[in-house]
Nucleic acid binder design. Sequence first.
DNA 1: TTCTTGTCACCTAGGTGTTAATAT
DNA 2: ATATTAACACCTAGGTGACAAGAA
Lengths: 221, 221
Amino acid sequence: EARLEMKSLWNEFNELGTEMIVTKAGRRMFPTFQVKVFGLDLDSEYILLMDFVAVDDKRYRYAFHTSSWSVAGKADASMPPRIHVHPDSPAKGGHWMKQIVSFDKLKLTNNLLDDNGHIILNSMHRFQPRFHVVLVDKGRDSVLRAEQNFKTFVFDETKFTAVTAYQNHRITQLKIQSNPFAKGFRDCDPEECTMEVLGTAASASRPRSYHRPSSLQLMGV
Amino acid sequence: EARLEMKSLWNEFNELGTEMIVTKAGRRMFPTFQVKVFGLDLDSEYILLMDFVAVDDKRYRYAFHTSSWSVAGKADASMPPRIHVHPDSPAKGGHWMKQIVSFDKLKLTNNLLDDNGHIILNSMHRFQPRFHVVLVDKGRDSVLRAEQNFKTFVFDETKFTAVTAYQNHRITQLKIQSNPFAKGFRDCDPEECTMEVLGTAASASRPRSYHRPSSLQLMGV
DNA sequence: TTCTTGTCACCTAGGTGTTAATAT
DNA sequence: ATATTAACACCTAGGTGACAAGAA
């Protein structure tokens, strides 16, 4: 009834241990959480939303010398729970099913006092995104049908560690290779570095490198 | 029940004879048609939309030597009529009234075969934008109440001539001075040419000019 | 002649990881 | 030490009028 899009890309990240940046202003997820929805009633109205639950009760730390994560104690105080309602909500089943539903407006923040409606997460903690479909039931006693009007989908491969700066260098490289907005950091021939990593895409080694001047000499401090 | 926003800017354009560019791909209007809506029922649902009607049955021509428009004959065959439904539709009265309603996604085209849902207009003809508020009435016999569920607003100062290229040079200059996206053509000190023409904004003459190289020497043809 | 089209430099607006500096 | 922040170069994406060339 709901299929995760870009599943192979999510798998690539998940195998390395996905990291998502959180910032004070709010940062989008990459990959973007996108789903194809099936089996809704064409003319009934639904609200689609996401939330994030802690994977465990632990705080993590990354050891650069071993390139691995380890537990660094119990979780910090949990953040105020928030949900992200897809901006098209509410909309009819026909609307949701006619195209991929993309949560590209969703942003993650570590700012406890955020008033932009972003999702608040603890850095160095692990989270599992969840996707919910809620049937808008305006009839009497809708509370009695709350259970059947509410469906939740969890895709294990979308779990991630929230960070304020990337820890695993291989995650950084995969982000750079697959996110169009990071094209400026790609280490390849400027002529042909348009292709993105999708699924088992080839990774032919590129002989030429694109070197930008070090910002050391550019930033006048 | 509906107030035109940026009325003074619309008036400035209207006094010169507003022109709006139409292109094959579709061009936004400037000024953007924006309204503040009042008096809706907070929890009832409304659809807000726009359409464009011909001001008269004439075709126009611009005489550069006299800087004036004149009638150039009867109107060409009318274009397929289209409406532009505001993308937030349908939404409750509370949603529409809590902020300015902006039709900035609306685009004008002269392409009869357009399949992007843009508004199709005849170039060198005059048009009057119209704004409609439709109450979503799901009751029986709603057809009997169609009249009272439908309100139309016409702001005379928003009428314009559709063109494929600007005719009146003063219109061009006012667009450049007031549209942020045309800032590159402003003839002023690059340091301080941020201010836009709003209402009776001052037009202090600027001693310094910003001259870009002529594209004659840049375009290698 | 008059009008239309396509390309361009130049903007707005905002999403990237990098880096140095700061905080804890 | 480790984690966070803020400024930055470099992108994507797309809205401007100018201009030259084409069409009617």
